[in-house]
């Protein structure tokens, strides 16, 4: 698996894509593989204010429960209902159509501390 270079990666195995002051967040391919068959996903309501590092939801496989951590502070402006309805998408396209939430942030530069694709690839080796 080669990780997309236009994304940033957290130690908790979330990815973040920055477009202006909007940050799209999901879980990485490494995370979905570690989880196995994803059967449940819970996401926050639109409008919720998140702190950096705060739990924003949960993803569950048949065997495991895993919290989701926000890589940045901001307001949730979108949540991907389609993965709540069909969590198996997280195993198929974690970096694309199975995105989780979109956060509006006042400080996108805070994401600079996250890993790039090369560093994350090394981190998960």
């Amino acid at each position: 698996m080669s990780y997309p270079t236009n994304l940033k990666y957290s130690k908790d195995h979330e990815w973040a894509k920055i477009e202006g002051n909007k940050v799209t967040v999901g879980i990485t391919d490494h995370a979905q593989k570690a989880l196995g068959d994803v059967v449940y996903c819970e996401l926050p309501s639109v409008g919720r204010i998140l702190k950096a590092g705060e739990t924003f939801g949960v993803v569950e496989s048949i065997k495991a429960v895993s919290d989701l951590y926000s890589p940045i502070a901001g307001k949730v402006v979108a949540a991907n209902q389609s993965i709540v309805d069909d969590p198996a998408q997280l195993n198929q396209d974690p970096h694309g159509s199975a995105w989780m939430i979109q956060i509006e942030t006042e400080n996108p530069a805070a994401l600079d501390s996250l890993m790039d694709a090369t560093a994350y690839t090394a981190y998960t080796k």
Partner: peptide
Amino acid sequence: PVQYSGVMQEH
């Protein structure tokens, strides 16, 4: 082994 191909498919 906790799984090979995946719990769902094995089950």
